[in-house]
Design a protein around this nucleic acid. Structure first.
Lengths: 238, 238
DNA sequence: TATTGTACGGTTGTCTGATAACCTTATATG
DNA sequence: CATATAAGGTTATCAGACAACCGTACAATA
């Protein structure tokens, strides 16, 4: 029996495919920055799709900051310096060096966040922090739920800074890191040293509660360096 | 004659506005994660625009990872675990508090970057750094070109860490900040104290060149706090 | 009863064609 | 020469249609 997979594989979002194709033209420099793209009509003809699809593709590129469109003029390739959003492909973090780099970035942010949270947190913040801590210490020690509680703990610290951007960036970064860890199945390693981890979290919490930014920063630094060494990361430090 | 302002005002880029409006519904939790959005037809009716515009808006949200669409079923708000990107609406930074928050976030990143750059930079990095510095000190002191050189200087420091994420995040943040400053026309204030700023930059450069991370961090911290006070920001510090 | 097949309504995906808004360029006009 | 106007091209938006696909309800079958 012969199956025709080329027919079945026809799917996977037409505009996205065309967008990445045009995007590659730009990234590879075949369309120089500032240069005008072909008109929508021409692109539609070239790819053999309708103008709607081309428009959606271009809209996506514009959203990523790769092109700018001017009504009545055309679409132009921009250079990649001013894009409107940050994006991390999950695949990138499979690489150990890349993962380590992201962790290195997280370090100063978490430390600073701990310091700010120590100063800015409210009573409600502390309650939520304790709830997350509760879930970590509770019965089933390091299940999926425990990992989520760990995430929630750090997220709550970011929220306790009352700085929207710390929450936005740290939430994003921590999420990527935890996801990368999970897919790498390194969580197994963590099971054994869970007591240590919890103790470090408690130390952070206590420093926060006593509104001591210096101690909070130090506790967070200690925790992250511990976590890093457990993950076999070699972070620069001085 | 009655005008319906609840409908979208249509002076510029309709889909982007609708996207951010729907996006806010999701971010603020009025549409719960996993919940289904109204159909495109209904959304089109609600906003008083055509389905094409709604589709482009949803495409944008999907690109940002806030919604997922399934053909024949509908569009769903994703739980923010798989949000693939960070985005900052430029309008948000018009608010002084928000601008200050972003600057506060930038602080620890720049400082850490300075420390890492002091350790990791290569000879070429230093050359590029000096080129940026050259453009700042050159003839026309604080024109648009000078501002760009300032940006390039900080960008080069981020690059000198040889950590892709520092470059990605700091480049992004610094860009937003400089844009916000420019649109607020606060650049005029900077004109007078340009000598101070340049001196601070030189101090950073020298610390970097001598591969002294502690001094580099301190120089960067001093510079940013100086810049902050010039911008009338009140940053938390301890 | 339990499983499978099928028809149906609803939703997103794509196509087509038209009109509006806008920009650039060329031409006419004084 | 400078300015106004017309023309043509391009993107933005609109409207309506059909295709592809999904979930469900219900009938058919074993």
């Amino acid at each position: 029996m012969v199956m025709d997979f080329s027919q079945i594989r026809r799917n996977e979002h037409l505009p996205a495919r065309i967008a990445s194709q045009i995007g590659r033209e730009i990234s590879d420099g075949r369309i120089a920055p500032g240069e005008k793209l072909p008109t929508e009509h021409i692109l539609a003809k070239t790819f053999g799709v309708s103008r709607s699809v081309v428009r959606e593709a271009i809209a996506q590129l514009r959203n990523e900051g790769l092109v700018e469109t001017r009504q009545g003029v055309g679409a132009f390739a921009t250079d990649f310096e001013h894009r409107q959003s940050i994006r991390i492909e999950q695949g990138n973090l499979a690489d150990h060096a890349s993962f380590q780099s992201l962790f290195q970035l997280r370090l100063p942010l978490e430390i600073e966040a701990a310091g700010l949270a120590a100063v800015n947190h409210t009573a409600e913040d502390l309650v939520k922090l304790d709830e997350a801590l509760e879930q970590m210490t509770g019965g089933e020690k390091w299940t999926e739920k425990g990992v989520l509680a760990d995430l929630a703990f750090h997220r709550q610290i970011a929220a306790s800074t009352h700085n929207e951007y710390f929450l936005l960036f740290l939430g994003f970064i921590a999420e990527r890191i935890h996801l990368a860890i999970n897919t790498a199945r390194e969580a197994a390693v963590l099971t054994e040293i869970v007591e240590v981890t919890i103790a470090e979290h408690v130390a952070i919490r206590d420093a926060l509660a006593s509104r001591d930014p210096i101690r909070a920063r130090e506790a967070m630094r200690h925790h992250l360096h511990g976590a890093a060494s457990r993950l076999d990361l070699q972070l620069k430090v001085y």
